[in-house]
Simulated assay, not measured.
Amino acid sequence: MSTGAMASRGRAATAARPSPLLRLDPRTKALLVLATSLVVMAPQGASFVPAALVLGVLLALNEGAWVRALALPAGAAAIGAVAHLLPVLLPHPAVGMVATLAAYLVRFVAIGGVALHLISTTSPTELTAALRAARVPRAITVSAAVMLRFLPTIFAEARAVYDAMRLRGIGGWRGMLRHPVLGIERFTVPLIASSLRVAEDLSASALLRGLGSPSRPSSMRPPRLAAADGAAVLVALALGTATVLW
């Protein structure tokens, strides 16, 4: 895929991004993700999982992502049932290990609900400009921008490889169960080759955009904090305070 095709895909993805009711500054979104991660992954962070899920659902509703707003509590409830109810019904050491993994997986689901709002509503250009405005070190800024561009492209390439395998009759769960090693090989080799090609195109695009330039680039739309950002922070603080008082 050429650099021009990558740029066209990036413009199409930006145009297809949803328009939230309350537009939050990328710095506020990143702060919510960071605060949620620190609180939920703390030693006593399991008690903050419901608050993080409520925050993720509110952000999804603000974005208009109805499927995510329903999937977050449903998925967390299912995993929580495995973590807390399954050991009671089936007391076994193996079941206890599965329950422990499920208890930590619920935390990642809660954090993912907040992080998905950042990924789905923020373009790499907006995130880079916001991190520069927040005086974040360049190493973190460049890494975050590259990750935000690289991961969606890799998911799209993985889907394309999977569809190509199914068209040739070598994909699907049946093929993976019959020949697991061969199926993994047929999936990973094209994906690795595509990832290397995409990484080269992204590197060329980053150099053209001056991502590693020592001078500070300007932004056509500088990030600005608004009343919606203060409201989002107050809602997050209210959820955390309610959890502590409860």
Rank of each mutant, 00 (worst) to 15 (best):
V82S: 00
L58E: 08
P124S: 04
T125K: 14
R107H: 13
G80H: 13
P124Y: 10
A83Y: 00
T121P: 01
Y104R: 13
A103S: 14
V33F: 08
P87W: 02
V49L: 01
A103N: 12
S120P: 06
V39D: 04
A81T: 13
S120F: 10
A102P: 00
P87Y: 08
E63H: 10
L70E: 03
A76W: 08
M97P: 00
G56M: 02
A103G: 14
I111P: 01
A65M: 07
T100C: 00
S47N: 10
E126T: 11
V88G: 05
A99D: 02
A110L: 06
A46N: 09
S37L: 15
G96I: 07
L59H: 07
R68D: 14
L90M: 13
P91Q: 03
A129E: 09
A81S: 13
V95T: 14
A110E: 05
A74F: 15
V82K: 02
L89H: 09
G96S: 12
R107T: 12
L72H: 04
V106P: 08
M97R: 14
V88Y: 10
A74T: 15
A69M: 06
A115N: 11
A71V: 14
E126C: 03
V40L: 06
A115F: 12
L55Q: 00
L118Q: 03
A51K: 06
V109P: 01
A76R: 07
T128V: 13
V98G: 02
L70K: 08
L118A: 08
G80R: 14
P93I: 11
V54H: 08
A42D: 05
T128N: 13
V114S: 04
P50K: 04
